[in-house]
Design a protein around this nucleic acid. Sequence first.
DNA 1: CAATACCTTCTTGCATGGTAGAAATCCTAT
DNA 2: ATAGGATTTCTACCATGCAAGAAGGTATTG
Lengths: 231, 231
Amino acid sequence: MQEGIVSQDTAVDDSLGETTLLDRIRELILGGDYKPGTALSEVRLAEYYAVSRTPVREALKQLQIEGLVEIRPKVGTFVREITRREILEMFEVKETLEGLAARLMARRGQIPELDTLRTNVEASELAVLRNDSTAYANLVHEFHETLITGSDNLKLAQHYRTLMNQLAYHHLVLTSVQHPGRLSRSTAEHRQVLELITAKDSVGAELAMKDHVWASSREVMMDSVSRQDRN
Amino acid sequence: MQEGIVSQDTAVDDSLGETTLLDRIRELILGGDYKPGTALSEVRLAEYYAVSRTPVREALKQLQIEGLVEIRPKVGTFVREITRREILEMFEVKETLEGLAARLMARRGQIPELDTLRTNVEASELAVLRNDSTAYANLVHEFHETLITGSDNLKLAQHYRTLMNQLAYHHLVLTSVQHPGRLSRSTAEHRQVLELITAKDSVGAELAMKDHVWASSREVMMDSVSRQDRN
DNA sequence: CAATACCTTCTTGCATGGTAGAAATCCTAT
DNA sequence: ATAGGATTTCTACCATGCAAGAAGGTATTG
């Protein structure tokens, strides 16, 4: 029925198999397929995903709450431009939340996540030696994720993930050119955090983690400056 | 009260003048009018507020994201029961976020919010002398709110407010019986934070603030225990 | 009396038609 | 040619109809 309308040009019934519509659109924004300023029309998205406007609308509304899109009433929905200041603000919050995670995890003592962390750091050190930056990027993601889950605080995890989505952190790390010495320094910082957590030094782990996040934020911010200058 | 959602069929157009439907429902939950477990039917709310199901549905969906209600697919929407563990988790995050706010505000130096804070502390000290607990509760709220805005970090403010909504903090503070000596101690802690911020001692301010939040969380948790025992 | 199958009645979920408003475009007049 | 006003065409928004699933009560059967 709809095929007559949509089959021609766009709509290859992208039939969201398992992934939800919301995740689908979010990934497209985070992946940079929808650049800031792009209009996200309800009807076009509905046609493209072969659903009605209602679920599309719901997804867009949540994306607005997450801060990824801006809905201008009676005008349209657009991919938001994240300002440099916002990124700075988010890194400040990220630093604090991850510091808390390190402290909480240190307090817990012997937990399985500790082994995961140790394995991760060792793999990271190998990745640095092999200069395998893509493997390294994934390991970094896993390290931070393990820390969050290891803190055993669901509310913390929730706020953290919301923040990371808005930051498009994964995208930031991947696109930003890692400075030469940074990889080894970053891994050393990871190891230090790990050792402090193992030693159950909660305040030390918190401080070390905050320092680490601050240092890596500096790197990313420098890259984002140069990227911004090119525009 | 107990009949809750629908009074009669006579939809008393509670015509949400300026406040949005979302805020309206949220306040009712936070105010305790809708107790945990209460079913929030789309149709009944729609009739009651004289709108269609669609905006009601949108509001409920956001409330789910905020963690205030739980939507069980094809079953119904219910006011969530906040567990004791969740409250503990939220206080841990609250402590960290407010600590960050104190640090950031201390870093900023001479700003108008500093005067607001000083005026607030002085008023609080007077309220303690007069044993005016309702005035004190409002001043506490203002103190923390000023700190957050004074940090000049919108992302921090956003996460903080979401957290406070979920905690139903205002309700917690108002219903919980403040322990005798707590008021004066709490005010003294406020003053200490203020002085440290004034002295631009950012790390000191952060630690003092974290201690303060931790102390007051202990008070609230003790009360919430006794309340839970009564059920 | 107990257990099970069915049936009624709720619920949310999705699709779609109509509306108001904003913005861009075109048309007219100076 | 340019400025201003009417109009057309988008947009999000809201109301409502319809369908599918979950739950509870009831009747029937062992």
